[in-house]
Design a protein around this nucleic acid. Structure first.
Lengths: 218, 218
DNA sequence: GTACAAAGTTAGACAAGACTAATAAAATTA
DNA sequence: TAATTTTATTAGTCTTGTCTAACTTTGTAC
């Protein structure tokens, strides 16, 4: 079994992994807000536990076991977020902090029950995929909103870099996942977008906003 | 804020407190499965934090603040047990371990929501009172089943020393809280009881069982 | 290709929370 | 009350996970 601390390192490694599955010590250090020497020593420990491939001065990579353990934690986190929203009436902007704690609970039955009560959801409230029990994770192919052009009609599919402030902003504009949005125009100088949807005839979204929204083209 | 470890000490102190509110280091050590010297040093720490009155070789006592903090943890534990049973479909024999972990979650909103969804329950699934938000706890006056005599008609009100095995035993005899039970006879030599209830014309309950059941006389 | 900056590692310290061994105080029993 | 047992404390060690300071390696710029 992994300690709470180890779980946090594994999760961060999983989330930071690029296409090659590599993460730098420096990145990990920043993500976890833990100084580099501490990270290095934990990597040696996780390497002994066969959870991470570690060689001095080389990028870090999770082993298959490390990936699976990490995916399990992320599964628990996302199931919890979904449960908090769907079954307990929390807003999507308020669930991260709680899920961050609940994800460490050791009880397969507990999460099994959540999964069942939620009818085996595939996505969390922010549109991120929930890994299955084997740690398999299926990302749908979404585009970023900021890469769309005037005239496109799209459906909001997921939110990235989900901070409470950003989610509250989306709430204030009644922007929610599944919403059909038409792009009226894109300002070339600052990449801001004017869009229309449901009962909002015209809203302007800054580049900062549009690059954080994943969409499905229709 | 108290650490997870500190919380466990506070909770154990609260639960072990006798009528005088006193607990011995030895008792606490056994309850927590932690050696006495470790307990002593933690008591000094909690004393500095004004959570425990500690003097060498004297019994331990929680301060008002210590009591309140402990009651909050117990409130979270019992609300969680109730939530697991009522809203997630767990059996009363399966909730302790999970609640033991969930009780440490730091999020007033989370437990507030549970309380609300459960419609502000006064008792947990084992009949123990749930402390209110101020840490106030109201025990109803129950008798122990083993103190009742032949002919008494009683209602099962609560279970003490709740272990999973004991609760499974009660399940196997269809004994649940609120059940009306008539005592047919008491064997003088071993204090076992023959009782009848609902569709059970005759069941024998050992002393070990009857002293763990709290009842309301009718 | 040398110099410098950025990234990473080593060494050593520290706090929390656990332990064992030895000692001291309190309680019990003869 | 003296002897013994039980309870509690002190002293010192260990592990986990963190830190800072100093050093090394790698990558980049001139």
């Amino acid at each position: 079994m992994n300690s709470l601390t180890e779980e946090n390192y594994l999760k961060a490694l999983f989330i930071l992994s690029n296409d090659r599955g590599e993460v730098n010590v420096n990145e990990l250090s920043k993500q976890l807000q833990i100084k580099m020497p501490t990270v290095t020593s934990m990597m040696k420990k996780l390497s002994l536990k066969k959870l991470v491939y570690y060689e001095s001065y080389k990028p870090l990579r999770l082993t298959e076991k490390g990936k699976k353990d990490a995916a399990t934690i992320i599964r628990k986190h996302r199931l919890t977020e979904m449960f908090l929203v769907e079954k307990m009436g929390f807003g999507w902007e308020d669930v991260h902090e709680i899920a961050e704690q609940v994800e460490h609970i050791q009880s397969p039955d507990f999460f099994e029950k959540m999964d069942e009560l939620l009818d085996y959801p595939k996505l969390d409230p922010h549109g991120s995929p929930i890994p299955d029990k084997n740690g398999k994770i299926v990302w749908k192919e979404y585009s970023k909103l900021n890469e769309c052009k005037a005239g496109d009609i799209i459906k909001l599919a997921a939110v990235i870099h989900t901070s409470s402030e950003f989610l509250k902003f989306l709430n204030s504009r009644e922007l929610s996942l599944g919403l059909k949005v038409k792009i009226k125009s894109v300002e070339p100088f600052d990449n801001s977008m004017v869009v229309t949807y449901s009962n909002h005839p015209s809203e302007t979204l800054s580049h900062t906003v549009s690059e954080r929204l994943l969409v499905e083209k229709i």
